[in-house]
Design a protein around this nucleic acid. Structure first.
Lengths: 214, 214
DNA sequence: GGAAAAATACCGGGAAACAGGTAAAGCAAA
DNA sequence: TTTGCTTTACCTGTTTCCCGGTATTTTTCC
């Protein structure tokens, strides 16, 4: 995990604002254990670079001109699982932070984080750690009322049918699989829609996935 | 955040195994800044306790006899946002960890974590921090290939319609809202199903939510 | 300016889903 | 034993969705 002391950490920067890149370079070049191996203003350029070069950690903005930073993060982890992704962004929405984490980011800071905080997070991420700035930690630790909304209590059978619906099975298919009448499945569907107070399956599955039920 | 030195941290333990509770109590009672204010073998019992008592941090198992630990976590944060929830579980699946985080947990350790690690996480969580054991950090930092699956590239209109579908609007409703023909919406729906390689809206919305598209 | 992608719209048909209602059997808990 | 919940199943009717295909216009990009 931690590198030999005679071998510099290969770090890359991906941001669509050259001035941000320049500022980061100035800050990081003064650390003799870090080598700013490359800077990129587009996601595709960085992905190309990853093909022939090993990068230990990348400082990644989310808003990029070509690829969505969330997808880029995923692509980076797919192509080079050993590369740590540290998000450096102005987006402070909890849902974005959680999604970046879900997509494989090792850390997240806002662009207003201090230099010390950035370096600390870089070091922690290089040690295989999940690292956030304190500000991000407090955002994560404070879900909104919407995020804490209670889900209905489902019976065993309802859960089973909800899973099957979310897997894309139709009512006839579920009936066959469970050896039940299609009319039985229809009744269960109706009961699920009523419990979640939605009108159709799209809204049902959206809530169910968001709440971790499927 | 950090308490006065003359005031003990009120800590609670919720686990359905009395032997686990006892072991934790032995460990924690030796720390003079902690007060094990209560131990509970059921979620409801703890929620009752929360009504009249302030708890700074709770060590929470996920598998409980009455309430699902994920729902319990949500309920705790809803009723007492200032209470930190530190999950102590045998479940090491990344999806469970992420969902507990999403539901408001401030930290997560496996039950095989060392005493030092547990105490360290308790202290960090009390400082408003998100804290994990090193083992959990490595699980989070390593998403599976399934979790990194690429989502199709959607056009601007497709994204818009996908959002509306996930909000539960029907084809006629979307057509009216966007001032387009129902047949146009039908074509967009068909294209979305094809792009995601699914057969119906349930599977479509499931993937879209999981991938953070809606 | 041209090519390609995106967006719009159409057609017919059948299946699935939704909506409103009802009812009985089985199971679990008090 | 009783009560209440869960599960199963039925009925009719309407609406929506999915499936197979096609075509033209608009917009975007090279």
């Amino acid at each position: 995990m931690l590198h030999n002391t005679n071998e510099k950490i290969q770090l890359a920067i991906v941001d669509d604002h050259p001035v941000v890149i320049e500022g980061l370079q100035r800050l990081l070049n003064s650390r003799d254990y870090l080598d700013v191996a490359g800077t990129f203003t587009s996601g595709n350029a960085f992905l190309q670079h990853l093909k022939g070069n090993k990068i230990d950690i990348v400082l990644l903005d989310i808003s990029l001109p070509d690829i969505n930073g969330m997808e880029l993060c995923k692509e980076i982890k797919k192509r080079s699982p050993g590369t740590s992704v540290l998000v450096l962004s102005n987006h402070s929405e909890r849902s974005i932070i959680m999604q970046m984490l879900q997509n494989g980011a090792s850390g997240y800071l806002l662009k207003n984080a201090s230099a010390d905080e950035l370096l600390n997070c870089i070091n922690e991420a290089l040690n295989g750690q999940i690292s956030f700035s304190n500000e991000i930690k407090q955002i994560i630790a404070r879900p909104s009322a919407h995020e804490l909304k209670e889900v209905p209590q489902l019976t065993r059978r309802e859960k089973e049918i909800l899973h099957l619906i979310s897997d894309g099975l139709t009512t006839p298919q579920i009936a066959e699989k469970l050896s039940l009448s299609q009319l039985t499945i229809e009744t269960h569907r109706r009961n699920l829609l009523q419990k979640f107070d939605v009108n159709n399956v799209a809204a049902l599955i959206k809530v169910a996935v968001q709440q971790g039920l499927v």
